[in-house]
Design a protein around this nucleic acid. Structure first.
Lengths: 247, 247
DNA sequence: TTGCAAGAGGGTACTGAGTACCATATCGTC
DNA sequence: GACGATATGGTACTCAGTACCCTCTTGCAA
């Protein structure tokens, strides 16, 4: 019955538009009483996004498992969950996207949904980074960045009419965030680096590469970066990634 | 008159709560006709945020000037504008924060306002990075990160009851974003770095520090970083900043 | 079988936000 | 004083959302 209502509502929204469709129209087409509509959907807007509650629960469950050593990676995986929900029904998702673009009320509603996802991700990160300095701040920033990257890829996929590989687009977008904020996988990667880092511009002399502490760096996986101070950090990151992929 | 309406509305919201206050109550206290309320505020929620339209216009104007060589810096300055608006009336801002925390409708409304700020910042960045690879994606991500950092600092300031230096808190929060995504100030900092970067873990031998191209690096300001591959990037950034501040 | 408790659906009436339309000042200008 | 423009008040309407009560079925117990 919930499904019948959602379908009747969506059809009418596509035919006459969201605002020109009253709840009475919907229940008339679905052949049920007006009261029943509000039993299944708290508001008219909810009928447009019938599957987000479930997806949000899935996301929470995924993060509850908490078996990912890298919190940023876990959060990216959680974001992929949302994309898969959209990709499961490309046609419906694209049509709905058109609706939300036209109707301000739906945009606001979708915004509040997105914010619940973001809040879930931020809450998870805040727990994982409870002891880190600026943990709460970083949690908020990373959650926002992940959501923004996800939505950027999702929107361009939706604008393309649902063509192409949505998953790959999201992976690429999340890669940008992950490259900057994520920790490379494997445990024990949380502590070091501070002692290995220094500004050498005052020495102006040849310098020897330290091998790294075996406790910390058993494989000798040390990265040496030489960068201009004027270079933007994100570009350094891209270059490092490229160098690692090529080597 | 607009001010009188906003004040009457806010008083009533504090006394009886937002939902228990009707528009008729507001216009009765303000001594004007009901019709006039909707002339000045499109919705009841707008009366709670009477100054955001103006702030949004200020932000747009600030970004239009476009005299900042670093786009991320410009966007951070724009975000500071919002904080200053809140800090201009600490008591009002704190009381309003209490209201928005209690009333779901106000939270979603505030969300839509925040999104307009974010959209303004993202639009600016998108124009600045129109030619860069993944410019649109990065614009969205950085705008979201800046807004999240700003809001994190703003919220903790509001929760503290408006005590302490709000500006400093926002500066610190934005510093985190700026350190990761921003370009160091001064022109000419956009191009290099790619050629200076390499992964040296396979050489396992002493290596000499290149002085850097004078065109690009006239002062010899070269930073050499040696980091474990397992170290999270943000921590490297913090260390670099610390090293530069100390040196 | 009857009695009954519970839950799903339906119907009616109400509140209140927001809109449309029209009436009425008030003010400056010719 | 006539007149157009702008600001305000008033009335009536639509429609989302809620409160309350009714009906019907289902299932269980005496």
């Amino acid at each position: 019955m919930r499904e019948a209502l959602a379908e009747a509502a969506f059809q009418l929204f596509l035919e006459r538009g969201f605002e020109r469709t009253t709840v009475d129209d919907i229940v008339a087409r679905a052949g049920v009483g007006r009261r029943s509509f509000f039993r299944y959907f708290p508001s008219k807007e909810d009928a447009v996004f019938p599957d987000h509650e479930r997806c949000l629960a899935d996301m929470t469950a995924l993060l509850e498992r908490g078996d990912d050593p890298d919190p940023v990676g876990a959060v990216c995986d959680a974001a992929r969950l949302v994309m898969r929900m959209y990709a499961a029904n490309p046609e419906f998702s694209v049509q709905r996207y058109g609706l939300t673009q036209e109707v301000p009320g739906l945009r606001t509603y979708e915004l509040s949904v997105v914010r619940r996802y973001e809040g879930t991700l931020a809450g998870y990160l805040r727990r994982r980074w409870a002891k880190a300095p600026d943990g709460g701040l970083r949690a908020d920033v990373v959650a926002a960045a992940v959501v923004a990257a996800h939505n950027n890829a999702l929107r361009s996929w939706l604008r393309s009419g649902g063509e192409g590989d949505a998953e790959a687009a999201v992976d690429h977008a999340l890669g940008l965030v992950r490259g900057v904020w994520g920790e490379p996988d494997g445990p024990g990667g949380g502590e070091p680096a501070a002692e290995h880092v220094g500004a050498a511009e005052r020495e102006k002399a040849p310098f020897t590469l330290r091998g790294g502490d075996p406790d910390v760096d058993p494989e000798g996986d040390v990265i040496v970066m030489v960068a201009s101070r004027k270079a933007p950090l994100w570009r350094v990151v891209q270059s490092v990634e490229a160098a690692m992929a090529a080597g």
